[in-house]
Design a protein around this nucleic acid. Structure first.
Lengths: 337, 337
DNA sequence: TTGTAGGCGTTATCAA
DNA sequence: TTGATAACGCCTACAA
């Protein structure tokens, strides 16, 4: 019994395919007994209606595409958990895609989604704000998109972000108050929006406190951990900053490794604060001061916005930008002696 | 221009739908110019063949389902990375599902996959070895399955595991050699296979070294972090172990938190070793001794086995069990003074 | 090299 | 309450 479908069931029960179909659709237009007979036989044969065939008919995939730069990162892992939570309640499934922060991968995946593969997309973007026609094509097809955390400003979709500017400002100010004079800003790609916004908070805090801005201390890192290690190593050797403000978690880790090897003591010789949603930040050596975003809640919110939009497919849906609060958690790595 | 499909393209170009279809299938039975005209127009309209319709015809979804207990965990995150790597090269996509270690979720998702939703399944299981007919139903439909890390022994599918017994034995022996006399074994569900195997290594090491086994020191924890915290706290208060061997990463973290709060010094008062693929284990306070599994490679291997099986769909495919090596990495948390 | 026609499995519409 | 039929978009024999 290999290929089971409603036709086969119909024949076995001397019913029509439409009746079988109704047994699964929760329709009320069906006799209770009939339904039960059908479901019993279906169960016996482990039958469920073919998802792809149903989709072909109603153009509903019950699938959400989630696009993130990386997975092995507590922020995204928790955000995905939040998205999944909501999706599951709605009976939706998650198609996951990782871009490794490579813009081309993002484009190719989004294009792939362009023909009915998913009902909606939740993404944290990976590129710079230049050519986004691939995203505009989606909106023509009424595939709703929600950005979270990393967004393209020029695209009119709902967005879930955190108050990065404020947090960056606060973190930088905190470092200055602990006595730092030379704070390096670590960033992966300073021209994408998230790098820019976070940097602006840093810059403005410096200005407010009358600390001259030093271009050298903006450290543009890469995707490659080894390269980052050597970049940071030479920064510490040559520029001798007394504070590090990292816009991305893994650059803080790289800093820790370099400091371990160079016997630089955190926080005595160097204070470190980083954007990070690492749950075990308090367990690091020393405990890492973080700007922690409500990752799980952001996932929930992004998914909720997406479903709101999906459920009002026909009407115009005003795009919303939801800004959540991140928190500066001062720990040992940035404490004054 | 909302609904674009091959019919529309055909009409615009005065061609038949079959010709359009051929332009996308890489068929050679088509004039180069014709193909280019078609592809050009398609691109202009951002058209790609509808995945669901194609699937309905060829019964190929180009989708892999991945089922894991949790996502916010370096082991699984890295394994997923490995799976995705292979999948992407084959042009496949990943449908991700998280069970939270709840058996019912696993069953319901597997059942859902039972009707042509995915071409294959890679999973790390969440239940005990009892009723597995829901998995057997899959094999009847020739949906290949590969287990990784957490497996059901009684199901005949390919498996990718690590030498957990040896590593547990080695880790326990290591703790004994550093002078531990009372080693507690932390486990989440001691009756599932992975808990059992890891425990056996622990037991045998104790026996080899003539240390009497104490039932009290097998600590069965839960899914809930707060509950785990209090379980571990009372264990440390009342049973006063001098060593902890944790079969699961998050129980080691819980131990760290408890020790921080109770001012128990690791490794002086308590030595800790844990299964964990946490990449920043060396940065913890103190650096955590781990049994580290080759998570990424396991993902690669699992996906490769699955594709091997998919590509030989018609022939009989002998199920393979691939055992990879995990490594005991001794760090500060289990060092003798 | 291109076109015609039938069917993949389901469901909505309409009729009985 | 149930059944017949057409259609979703695509692909593949087969025919031209």
């Amino acid at each position: 019994m290999d290929n089971i479908n409603i036709k086969v069931l119909a024949k076995k029960l001397n019913l029509s395919t439409s009746t079988i179909s109704r047994a699964f659709s929760g329709s009320t237009d069906i006799n209770k007994d009939t339904r039960e007979r059908i479901l019993a036989l279906a169960k016996e044969h482990n039958f469920l209606p073919n998802h792809y065939a149903s989709n072909l008919r109603d153009k509903k995939t019950k699938t959400l595409a989630v696009i993130v730069p990386e997975i092995a990162n507590d922020f995204f892992a928790q955000a995905i958990n939040g998205i999944e939570e909501v999706a599951r309640k709605k009976g939706f499934y998650i198609l996951l895609y990782r871009t490794d922060d490579i813009f081309e991968k993002e484009v190719s995946f989004v294009n792939y989604l362009n023909n009915g593969k998913a009902d909606g997309i939740i993404m944290s973007v990976s590129g710079e704000a230049n050519d986004h026609h691939y995203l505009k094509a989606l909106s023509k097809k009424h595939v709703p998109v929600v950005f979270f955390d990393r967004v393209y400003e020029d695209i009119d979709v709902s967005k879930v972000t955190t108050n990065d500017y404020d947090s960056s400002f606060e973190a930088t100010e905190h470092l200055l108050q602990t006595g730092c004079k030379r704070i390096a800003y670590l960033v992966v790609n300073k021209s994408i929006s998230i790098g820019k916004v976070r940097m602006q908070g840093y810059l403005d805090a410096l200005e407010k406190h009358g600390v001259p801005f030093n271009d050298e201390l903006i450290i543009d890192c890469s995707q490659d951990e080894k390269i980052n290690y050597s970049i940071i190593k030479s920064v510490l050797e040559e520029l001798k900053p007394d504070g590090i403000f990292s816009s991305v978690e893994r650059l803080a880790f790289a800093t820790y490794y370099v400091c371990n090897d160079m016997k630089i003591s955190i926080p005595k010789d160097l204070k470190v604060v980083s954007f990070s949603s690492l749950q075990i930040a308090p367990l690091l050596c020393p405990a890492l001061s973080t700007i922690t975003q409500p990752a799980y809640e952001m996932g929930i919110k992004a998914a909720t916005l997406l479903f709101d939009e999906l459920e009002k497919k026909d009407q115009y849906f005003p795009k919303k930008t939801h800004v959540m609060r991140s928190k500066l958690l001062v720990r040992k790595s940035s404490q004054p002696e």
